[in-house]
Structures are given as structure tokens and as C-alpha cells.
Design a protein around this nucleic acid. Sequence first.
DNA 1: TTGTAGGCGTTATCAC
DNA 2: GTGATAACGCCTACAA
Lengths: 353, 353
Amino acid sequence: MLTLKTKITIAEIAEKSGVSISTVSRVLNNSPSVAPKKREKIQQIIDKYNYTPSAFARGMVNHTSRNIGVLLPDITNPYFTSLFNEVQSFAMQNSYATLLFNTMFVRNRKGHSQQLPEEEYFKMILEKQVDGVLILGGNIDKEDVSPPFIQALNQLHQRVPVVIVGSKLEGCDCLFLERDLKLGVTSIVHHFIALGHERIGFIGGEPGIRITSARTDAFRHEMAAFGKPVDERHVVPSDYYAPDGYKAMEQLLQEPRDTLPTAVIAMNDMVATGAIRAMKDHELLCPQHIAVASCDQFPYSEYSIPRLTSLDQHNEYLGRMAVLQLISAMNGSEEMLSINHVPKLIVRESCGA
Amino acid sequence: MLTLKTKITIAEIAEKSGVSISTVSRVLNNSPSVAPKKREKIQQIIDKYNYTPSAFARGMVNHTSRNIGVLLPDITNPYFTSLFNEVQSFAMQNSYATLLFNTMFVRNRKGHSQQLPEEEYFKMILEKQVDGVLILGGNIDKEDVSPPFIQALNQLHQRVPVVIVGSKLEGCDCLFLERDLKLGVTSIVHHFIALGHERIGFIGGEPGIRITSARTDAFRHEMAAFGKPVDERHVVPSDYYAPDGYKAMEQLLQEPRDTLPTAVIAMNDMVATGAIRAMKDHELLCPQHIAVASCDQFPYSEYSIPRLTSLDQHNEYLGRMAVLQLISAMNGSEEMLSINHVPKLIVRESCGA
DNA sequence: TTGTAGGCGTTATCAC
DNA sequence: GTGATAACGCCTACAA
């Protein structure tokens, strides 16, 4: 099980350079107090032998791995992909490496996927001696997070700083990075109303997940503010992917055509894509028959047909802030950063503007 | 810089259970020789204190981290996303965690991206004490890999097993997992020819990258086999993303309409999407005016308009094999696995069939 | 400026 | 079946 190839140690470097171990250690750690000539010579030997200090030994003494653990449900989902991309990049910038845990499923030998409880991942993460953990999504996105799970979260946080990208959880000690879930929806509603739409729908999002209810609530609230009634049959949650948008739209289209919404807000670009595809399959055009705008922009949606009108949620910024928050926590600060961005409406074709 | 929260050690567990350290160690490692009653009691204490053995200390003695390093250029690219997803999942299945390194760029404080030479990543990876490394793409995909880079690769492999998903490199000692780059192209050519196309083009792919030349070569070769001349102006490499497909198609459309290809093979679904969008912007329909098929299927392409005809390259299988190969190498075997799959043509709308 | 020595938390090898 | 004890490779007082 172990690599048989030998590793050179600090002792050998010391010997070959004719100095003590401590001196080598000093040059490794850029300690000022070492004679320039010696330093240079030692550095040469180090380079020559391609020596790398053992992270194990280092970890033993300073209890630090320079690794962070990142938990997310599905790296395949563009929202998480872009977020993680930024996280990894920014973490590396600060010389932290990233251990990724995809909690949604792990595929077993037979190709079947099976789900492990997130608590199991906490254990694994802990064993990896990460310096901090970042939770980008998963159980924490649910409306009802079970008390035992919160307790597990607290237990984890007790051992290592954990930052959660999401809404504050009652009784949870972890650090939270909250983003406004509703803001964007209202701007889409405004946009649609300005375009003269009266009947507007909302599709996508898994029921029981915070972002779903936050956005549908915001939708209803804003519609009410304009005195436009929301037909509850036009609010069709499902999930976050293209097939879900497809299904949701098909369900919407069950209704008589003359009461159909003239505009629909989609949870994200994948949902929008699925919905528009469903329309097409029912000989309906977007935006002519039903206009569509989405709450979360994914890459290359400006190349779809029609080009998608969406909200830029600034995920890069979010990812960077999350790492920043974690680093500050790992440095012992309890200060909570707050995210401060306004989603930007990108008007393209699908909304019909 | 260090977490101040204290960690409980094996010694404390031993003390609290009134046994020696060795005995605790035995129950931790499921050694058979420990009295059932003691084992149970010790396990209780372990659970009670939520004790986790230190990976550092363990690593020190058995020189193993149970971590693997994964190098890829861009996690945002669906090809790598799906590959990595499978890799991570399957690695975890075998109780390996995954350290991801995105080599394309790291964003700095000012949001600018900068590229680090891949050799730098080798160093970082080595410092992390991974048990093996998996290279999914990057420099190794180039047609001319520089000798110094190959040397760096060999140096890395000398310290830790490295598996490369890609074509064998002259003089490189690493293990390779080769997949057929050409096979799929020929089946698309057959398909188009069967549909009666005479003038066929190829778009996308960065010049100087193996997969680009492999596929364009295969394209030319197969066309020749059917006695169909390839107009070199109809072979337009660019890159692998949607904007590149867009540009390539625009370039193609510069030509007089009556000599335009009637069918085009795209490097992958993103390129196809961009190309079709460009057609639309020039009032050309797909597949009526130009049929399109892509060499690499990405998720949800069946929801695009038109639905994309593409090749399923079985990336999940590839990812699993890569991990398998690495595990076997980490266990000391030098045996090379060989990949054995035939890309499957998924006929949908964009090819006009 | 440099070297010596103790300790970090495990596992493995011995005795018992 | 159980318990000392010597590594493992590095860092950091402390001494010189």
C-alpha cells in the first residue's frame, strides 16, 4: 500500500551540506539568522536533490495542513462548479490546497450511486486534518435542518473553523456567509411588469429548499405590490436541472392556453433551457408566446437559442468572500464578513425586451 | 495561523480507558487480538470524545496520506467536470480523498488571472504528500511537449505514481491511459455521408493540441476513403468553448454560400452550440442549411435547440479507469490498463437525420 | 549565527 | 492479549 520510492530527509540535506538540521530548517523557513553563504550552499543541495519537506512531520509540530475541505452536493452543477473554481483558485492564491467532497452521491463498483449522510463526510474531513471547511451547499440549504445535523455541524466547528455559504441556522455556531436570495427576483418581476406582462409564473427549484421558497415568496410579494394576482397553478417547483425545467413547463402547459402565463421566471439557466425546449416541443415560441428570464446565469447562456435573459449573481465574488471568511476564521478571528452585492439583470432575448 | 482548539490524542483515550496506547491503537486498526470487552469499552470512550486519529502522525509512520492529487486545466469545462466528478466519487469509494489543482489560472487579489507553469504544481503536489497523482489534461495534451516538461514529469513519477489520461509521451515513464481520439469522428463522417452530404467541414479545437490534429486527421482520412475532397477552408480550428464555435462558424460563413459545407463536425457540444448560434445570427438554420454533429457530448445537450447530435465518449468509464490504474500503481503494480470503449453516436436533431 | 535535544501522535516490534 | 519503546521527519526553545 505504500510507495516504495525513498524520500530524502532534512537530516540528509544537513549532512550533505555539512551543517546541522536546524540550520537547514532555518533556510527552509526563511529564518533571517543564517549566514548568506551557508544559506546559498544549502539551498543548492536542496534543489539538487529535489528535496521537499514532509507535510506530515510539519503537520505534527504546527498542527496545520494548509489544506481546506470543501463540501458541496454536486460539482456537476454549474453554480457549484463556478463557485468552487473560484474557491480553489483563491485558496491556492493564499497557499491553501483544496480537498473536494461531493456529497450528493458516490458511485459504487456497479455504477450505482448511493448517498452517504453528510455527517459521514464530517468525519472523513476531520481525519484529513484540514485547517478549515467550507460548506457550499447540501443539507444546510433545507428549510428544516434537523437538530442532530446542526449538532454535528457544531461539533465539527468545535474542532475546525467552518464557514457555510447560506442562510444563518438557528443554534448553529458556524460562520455564515449570507447572500440575498430575493433581490434578483424582484428585479425580474419589475422588468416583466414594465414590459406589460400581467400573468407571470415561476418554475423550478426543489420544494423544501430555502432558496426555492425565498424566491417564490419574493415573487408573490412583489407581484402583490403591483396588484397583480399570482395564479398558484403558475408556480411550479421541481428541481434545478434542465429536465426539471422541461417537466415544470409541461405541467404549466396542461392548462388552457388563454390563461397561461405570458412570462415565466426560471430558477436558473438550466431550468430555463429545459422550459424553452418544452415550449418548442409544444410549438410555442420563446419569447413570443411565453417570455422567460432566469434567476441564475450559467456560462454561455448567451449562446443559446434564444439567448437567455438572466441574473448575474456574481458567484466569483461569493467564492472569494467565502475563502476570505474562512481564512480569517482560521486565523482566529470571529468576525463575520458580509456579502454586499446586487444581482445584475442581463437582458437578452428570452424575455422579449 | 494555527487552530487553537485542542485535539484529543490516543494517549488520553488510553488513559481514560485504563489501557495502554498500543491497545487503543489496536482497536483503531481492527487488530483481532484484543479482548472483546476491552475493545467495546475503548470504542465507547473513542466515540464519547469524538476522537479522530491524527493523519499527520499516521502519515509519519506509514508514509501514506490516502489523498490523491488531480491536475486539470479547467474544472469549468464540462469534459473535465464530468471526468473529475467520476474520479472523485470513485476515489472516495476506495477511501482516497482528492486534492484538486486547476492549472489553467489562479486569480489573484485584483481578479486578474495568471498562469503558473505546471511544474510549479508538481512541487505543490509533492509537498502535499499525496499517494498518487492523476493528470487529466494540460501540457500533456500538446503535440510538442517540451523535453524539460517530460523530465519534470519523470521526476514527479519517481517520487509518486502518476497516471496520465492521454496519449503516450516519448520518453515519459508515467503510466498512461490512452483513449481513442479518432474513432468517433469516423462514425460521424459515415453518418453524414450516409445522409448524402458531400461538403463537410470541421470546426473547433485548439491548433497544436493532440486531440485537434487527431480528429481533423481522422476527418480528412475518412473523407478521402470515401473519395470526398476536403476543402481546407472548411477546417477551422479555434478552441473548445462556445465563443470559439461561434467565431469558427463566422469565419466559415465568410465564404460564398454556394460552396459552404452542408454539414459540419464540431469538436464538442459547446463548440456546436456556438456555431449554431452564429448560424442563427446569419439567418441560417441548423440542420436545414448546415447540419451539425459534435464529437463530445456534454450534459443536457438534448435540451438545446436544436437538440444536438453528438458522441457519447463514456467519460464516466474513463474516470473510473483512471482511478483504477492509479490505485493499482500505488499498490506497486506496473501493469497498464487499457481503455476499451467505442464512442456512441447519439442521433438527435442537429444532424438532420 | 549555529547546534543540541525534546516533543508532536501514531504504528510496529518486541517482550511479557 | 497486553504494554513498553523506538522510530517517523520536522520545528523550536535553549545553549553555546
